[in-house]
Amino acid sequence: MKTLPSTLTLGLRRGNIEIRQFMRQRESVVFTLLFPVMLMAIFGSVFKDTIAPGVTFSQYFVAGMIASGLINSGFQQLAIIIPMERDFGSLKRLRGTPMPVASYFIGKTILVLASMFVQLILLLAGGVLFFGVHLPTAPSKWLTFLWLIVLGTASSTALGIAFAAVPKSGRGASAVVSPVVIILQFFSGVFFIFTQLPFWMQQVAAIFPLKWLCQGMRSVFLPDTFASHEIAHSWETGKTALILVIWLVVGLALAIRTFKWERS
């Protein structure tokens, strides 16, 4: 008798099938991949002011949109898709097969990484070509970029799976999740300059990961002289990493505790 395929093998196969399904859903492709680029194009064209020596609002905004990309492809996408799959009964059907739950999560993570990768390429290309964003040259900046993506995607994925327990139905998931993301984007200084937001808004935003991802992305894409314009007059990279790790742990713990295969 042959043995069951390994969790990792099945996870990779899940990833493959997830991406295939994703690409065939036009709404999800448009919503997840093109919407951030369109937003960037609109905001980047409207606000062209210089906000500090050598820094335009477009550049500031592009950094924020790249950070948002991590939230869109992980948190937002999963917190909407998973309740729908639960409503359709596809989760329960999977539950009845020998595929382990870990393989399902691996598949979802691969989907997030793939859509995040495409989104990043589009945002970076758009930013460089049209909005005067300069790609960093220092290897240390790319290193920061890399760990921001790894930690950002990981915590965003875990929190997306955890938050998928909140919407009561698949149909209503988008209405529950999207406002959370949009409000978070306003509070975290994606659409406005963070230091110009009211103090209480800054305080609320500082609890959540997006504010720190935005600040981290600014440290990668804006000149180091801009650090003095941040709240703490520094990029606070250590603190950023710490907060992302805390959210990753919280997200994982919640995801494991709250994940439901079927509608209750």
Partner: peptide
Amino acid sequence: RIGIVLQSTSDAGDL
């Protein structure tokens, strides 16, 4: 070792 056919499964059907 078992097979389960549930009451209604209706995913988006993009495969």
